[in-house]
């Protein structure tokens, strides 16, 4: 199984994603420069976090027009698994590979801390192996992670089971206090209708070793290993 990690000017979690995939999970992984138009022979793509193009204009707005994104869109349209993390999630929103939009955190502060997450959709290539009901401890690090969906879109996301992870408290309750950024319905991550494209603000790649504070992020990569390996 081969994974590709897209690298934009300003990506800064690309090496973390590479480390999580290759060194922790033994997945063959290569970097793909944003000017490449061919993804090569990959079974999955990570669009990593960072500040592509310095977040100029809007987070992800310029990166979505990088040449590689046409190939990513084609790959996604064919059902290829794509995971966008943090800025990667913002890029997937701007590219309309995922619905909704991202705004500045409600309290305007850059927030960097561990949050608790509850997975609500285990029918994606990145969440299939998350133990049911497990409260995941994963860090967030963003200034613009306030996911916004209007009433119609929220209903659609709920009806289609497109809400993948929500912020919760230590007991797994979804409360206003456990929402770190003001996101609609405490949404931390969503998927497209087919479920093959997933975007999330928290960083599973930063939580793959106990010495980093949590290894709960491994579930996302173990899911990819189990799901994608069995499909290829």
């Amino acid at each position: 199984m081969n994974f590709g990690v897209i690298v934009f000017p300003g990506s800064n979690c690309d090496h973390d994603a590479y480390h999580a995939l290759k060194h922790i999970h033994g997945i063959d992984t290569s970097f793909i420069w944003h000017k490449d138009t061919d993804l090569g022979d990959v079974d999955g793509i990570i669009v990593p976090g960072g500040f592509s193009y310095g977040d100029y204009l809007r987070s992800g707005a310029i990166a979505r027009f990088s040449p590689v994104m046409t190939a990513v869109a084609d790959f996604a349209a064919k059902g290829g698994p794509v995971l966008g993390i943090c800025n990667g999630f913002q890029i997937l929103l701007e590219a309309h590979l995922l619905p909704g939009t991202m705004m500045a955190n409600e309290h305007l502060r850059f927030t960097c801390k561990f949050v608790n997450l509850l997975c609500e959709n285990r029918d994606t290539p990145f969440t299939a192996e998350i133990p049911e009901g497990k409260i995941l401890s994963i860090p967030v690090a963003h200034g613009e992670g306030n996911y916004y969906a209007d009433g119609d879109l929220l209903k659609k996301l709920e009806d289609n089971n497109q809400i993948v992870v929500r912020y919760c408290d230590a007991q797994g309750e979804i409360t206003p206090e456990s929402n770190p950024n003001g996101s609609t319905a405490s949404i931390a991550g969503i998927c497209n209708q087919k479920g093959n494209v997933v975007g999330m603000m928290p960083h599973p790649e930063r939580a793959v070793e106990e010495k980093l504070g949590s290894a709960d992020g491994r579930h996302f990569f173990e899911s990819a290993l189990a799901r994608i390996a069995s499909a290829t």
């Binding site: 705004m103 500045a104 409600e106 003001g182």
Partner: peptide, 10 residues
């Protein structure tokens, strides 16, 4: 109009 503007509010 329907979108909360935290920077404006602050």
């Amino acid at each position: 109009e329907s979108i909360l503007d935290p920077k404006g509010k602050a």
